Amino acid sequence: MCNHTSETDALIHSTDPNHPANLICELCKLFYNNGWVTGTGGGISIREGDKIYLAPSGVQKERMKPENMFVMDNETQEYLRTPEVFKPSACTPLFLSAYKLRDAGACIHTHSQAAVMCTLLFDKVFRIANIEQIKAIPKVTEPGYLGFFDTLEIPIIENTAREEDLTDSLQEAIRQYPGTTAVLVRRHGIYVWGESVWKAKIYNEAIDYLLDIAVKMKQFGLDPAGEIGSEKKIQQLN
């Protein structure tokens, strides 16, 4: 599967820190430091123009280099560049789903502990409301962002033995929840996408904050989607 020449290497070598190959390395290291992509799990893909840049499988995220990247033609979905050693990420068809169904500019996959815990604490849909950080999440189906009093909903799909086998259920969740910018995978993690890599980063950070605080609310018997003032019952007990 080798397509590794000086010509194709030009696709991933750049002094521009905002070049997708450089950004993927930078963000993977950041996500590693956040505890979201421990081991070789998780990944990120960026779409720029007619090209899709993909992190490979089996590389420790904090040690990733531009030369490890796969580059794909967005229209034909054929690889323009493949590294000499590594295999494509099993996340690839799921990333492509976000590009196809949401016209995303980037897609992030993490194994965040907060994400995994929420898939154990919620049934089919994660819901949270009346938390300020919700205002960082887009409405998707209309211009603007969710408000403080809105309820954020993220569908939860069941995990499979092979990651690529999640594709159909992820696509179905995207269709059933046109306002979502993420899909949770039970006992596995989360996929988050956005119009650009920076939007995807913001959404991922905001959602992980909300997932984490939802876990803590559950520990105290609070409903993350409960009404304002419901916390007073807990306060009275203390």
Rank of each mutant, 00 (worst) to 15 (best):
I108N: 04
P155T: 09
F148Y: 15
I154N: 01
K218A: 08
V59L: 06
I207N: 03
L184Q: 02
T181G: 13
T82A: 09
M217G: 04
E26R: 15
E172V: 11
N18A: 11
V185E: 05
K218C: 08
E158G: 00
H109Y: 02
A200V: 11
G49H: 02
C28L: 13
M69S: 08
N34R: 15
L120G: 09
E172T: 14
F70G: 01
L30P: 00
D150Y: 13
A129H: 11
D150K: 12
E195P: 00
A114R: 03
A161P: 02
S112D: 03
K139N: 14
T8E: 06
S112G: 01
P155N: 07
V183G: 03
S196Q: 01
T92S: 08
P143W: 06
I213G: 02
L120A: 13
L54I: 15
G189L: 07
I134M: 11
N159P: 04
V125R: 07
V71T: 00
N130H: 15
N74Q: 11
D50L: 06
G189T: 05
R102I: 07
P66Q: 12
V59G: 01
I228E: 14
V192Y: 10
P88I: 14
A90G: 04
Y145D: 06
Y32E: 02
L101S: 06
C28D: 08
G226D: 02
L146G: 03
L121N: 06
I207F: 08
L54S: 14
R162C: 07
T151C: 08
F31G: 11
G105H: 11
P88M: 11
L222N: 04
D165S: 06
G49W: 05
E195W: 00
Q77G: 00
I157D: 00
A55F: 01
T92Y: 09
P20A: 15
F220E: 06
S45Q: 08
N22R: 05
T82S: 08
I52P: 03
Q236C: 00
K61L: 08
E231W: 15
S89I: 05
A104F: 09
K29T: 10
T40G: 02
A90R: 03
H19K: 07
L54Y: 10
C2E: 07
A136D: 12
N238I: 12
